[in-house]
Design a protein around this nucleic acid. Sequence first.
DNA 1: AAGAATCTGTTCCAAATTTCACAAATTCCA
DNA 2: TGGAATTTGTGAAATTTGGAACAGATTCTT
Lengths: 214, 214
Amino acid sequence: MAVKSEHIPKATIARLATYIQVLSEFKREGTDVVSSERLAEACSVNSSQIRKDLAYFGEFGVRGVGYYVQELITSIKRSLGIDRAWNCALVGVGNLGRALLRHREFSRKGFIIRGAFDCDPYKIGEVVEGMEIVCSRQLPAKVKELGLEIGVITTPPERAQRAANYLIGAGIKGIINFAPARIAVPKHIHLEYVDFFHYFYAAAFHIRFDDTRD
Amino acid sequence: MAVKSEHIPKATIARLATYIQVLSEFKREGTDVVSSERLAEACSVNSSQIRKDLAYFGEFGVRGVGYYVQELITSIKRSLGIDRAWNCALVGVGNLGRALLRHREFSRKGFIIRGAFDCDPYKIGEVVEGMEIVCSRQLPAKVKELGLEIGVITTPPERAQRAANYLIGAGIKGIINFAPARIAVPKHIHLEYVDFFHYFYAAAFHIRFDDTRD
DNA sequence: AAGAATCTGTTCCAAATTTCACAAATTCCA
DNA sequence: TGGAATTTGTGAAATTTGGAACAGATTCTT
């Protein structure tokens, strides 16, 4: 599935994820066809926003009818590149790492954590959720052996850069960094920062702002 | 701390959180003063972006000098409203809920989970991380008693709306929804959705995109 | 079968956001 | 002390994003 346009806004990608979520709900409820208007309402966005977001990737609707729910889900998934499984490496098996390893939703959504790595000798060899923790030095071998493409960093902040270096050296294509630290990567590596405190900060700011106003 | 401007972009709030993170790193390294240029580089943004983001809230720098690191951290925290503690209620003590309850970083960052709620009779009374799980029906009483302001939803998706209703009825001011479901709230309630699969989708999309190009 | 009704895809315009560029303020150094 | 070197804060330009409006395609109705 090719994209029609050169650059696609980050915000569009984020919304597509929301559309999938809501469309899946529609599907469960037994709705077969949905208009951009109805989908827009459920997603709290403008309906032309939806049509425009989809237009980046192709024409998925039928004029006068709307979008076939299942078909649209499939199209969006293909557009995002999540119509197949992605093999992931998790580096740093602390509290957060363990929580992610236990989180069943990952494999359900097609992100399969196939390797758990740590450089702590006390952790190496331990089995978490049926997966043996392996020394980070084995990353190059394992990345090749298992076809790992996405690296997930869940180390303490001070070890995030080293984890990234291991992953990059091992030939990973993208990194999702849960550690609260900025890291440097070559520009051909796709990097995403995950920090849910951002959401708490935003909430605090807006609530506080409400208070200030009156 | 009053804001100088009416509306502040969501993206600015997100970046301020990043600035704090990087500034804290500078502080640990012993750097006392930093220029917008240097901070910008560490955050991978434009330096006037930083100056403009800060200008929404006030004048924190010294011309010809830069910003005093500690002072700027304090100013940003005050601007965001995180210069004080926020009492939180967590609803839904499943895998994710337990992981968050165990996550020490919350109280370190000033978001203190003071109540854990669930409507499963088997869970009620259980103690997690020193906190007793309480029936969701007790939310109104507990919100008043403990001064809870932010609700954190970590239920399965089908119970997210009910959790939200309980929280809203109990007088909470903001909701952070970790459940993969859209929820409806009155507009005076601030609502944030957290879904880290968004980041995985974005990574998948960009990696796949790279592949497509050559 | 033709006209009304519906709903997408897209163009055009407005609003918001980012970046540039420079005046104003401060420090450094001779 | 005065002029060079910095570096912020900000107005204006450039870019990006979002929304309104409408032509084009499809279905419904009589």
